[in-house]
C-alpha cells in the first residue's frame, strides 16, 4: 500500500486533466463577447490552478456526478 497522502483536490485535478487530454486540443468552446477557449487553453488553466481553472475542475467533477446519477 502506498504511503502517499490522499489529496482530493490533486486527484480531481489529475482526473480532469486526463479527461481533457483525450480531446482534440484545438476544439473550442464559445464564451460570450466572441471569445473562445480551446481544450489546450482549458488544460493550461487547470494546470495553473487559476480562478477559471478551479471552476473548470469543479464543473467537470459535478458533470461526472450528473453522469453517474449522483445529482
Amino acid at each position: 500500500m502506498s504511503n502517499k497522502k490522499f489529496d482530493l483536490k490533486t486527484e480531481q485535478k489529475t482526473l480532469v486533466l486526463e479527461r481533457f487530454k483525450t480531446l482534440n486540443p484545438n476544439s473550442k468552446l464559445s464564451l460570450g463577447g466572441s471569445k473562445e477557449v480551446s481544450v489546450r487553453q482549458l488544460i493550461k488553466h487547470v494546470e495553473r490552478e487559476d480562478d477559471f481553472g478551479k471552476k473548470v475542475v469543479q464543473v467537470q467533477i459535478n458533470m461526472l456526478k450528473v453522469l453517474s446519477g449522483v445529482i
Partner: peptide, 16 residues
C-alpha cells in the same frame, strides 16, 4: 466530429 465531451462540459458549465 467527436465534440460530445466538450458539449457535455459546456452544458455542465451552464448548469453550474
Amino acid at each position: 466530429y467527436g465534440d460530445t465531451p466538450l458539449i457535455r462540459f459546456a452544458l455542465a458549465w451552464n448548469l453550474e
